[in-house]
């Protein structure tokens, strides 16, 4: 049952990712953004299959929720439609596909050859309880540091958003 779910979620995630970056029907950023949301959702499904429930929830909340809303908001704000009017650079597309294909080939062969999962069984239960303990005990300092990072990011955004930015 889980194996079937894995294939479903994984295949859908890859398909949606493909549609995000290379939608053959539309080059609208809005479509890309919506397919990205779907990718996040299927990824969250994969996280659930890996028993990382808290991460799955965070993934939905932060990515599919906050980040994507932000994206859509900006898209609407900027009214980006120009890319549709431009032609593909054939050479650029070819080179891009070759490069990415090469990278994929390298990664895939490495993964297959290394037998990274040989003899390993899925054991870890990423319960929220365990995660919370680790986060507030061993990783307390990074946790607080990340909060500072978020604060700084927020300040930066406020500064950049000022109209009279010079």
């Amino acid at each position: 049952m889980t194996d079937v779910l894995f294939y479903v979620f994984g295949g859908l995630a890859l398909a949606c990712a493909f549609m995000t970056v290379a939608n053959p029907f539309s080059r609208s950023p809005v479509a890309s953004a919506l397919f990205l949301v779907l990718t996040m959702v299927w990824l969250a499904g994969l996280f659930v299959l890996l028993h990382a429930f808290f991460i799955a929830a965070v993934q939905i909340l932060v990515y599919a929720g906050a980040v994507m809303v932000l994206f859509l908001f900006v898209i609407m704000l900027l009214d980006l439609k120009e890319e549709e009017r431009r032609h593909w650079n054939r050479f650029g597309v070819g080179a891009g596909f070759i490069t990415v294909g090469g990278l994929l080939a390298v990664l895939a062969t490495t993964i297959v050859r290394s037998h990274a999962g040989a003899g390993l069984t899925p054991e870890l239960e990423g319960t929220t309880h365990a995660l919370g303990l680790a986060l507030f005990q061993r990783y307390l300092l990074p946790f607080e540091a990340v909060s500072v990072l978020l604060l700084v990011g927020m300040l930066g955004v406020i500064l950049l958003s000022r109209r009279d930015l010079k």
Partner: peptide, 10 residues
């Protein structure tokens, strides 16, 4: 950068 990385990894 990507092409260089691919070649290096290769």
């Amino acid at each position: 950068a990507a092409a260089g990385m691919v070649v290096a990894l290769w």
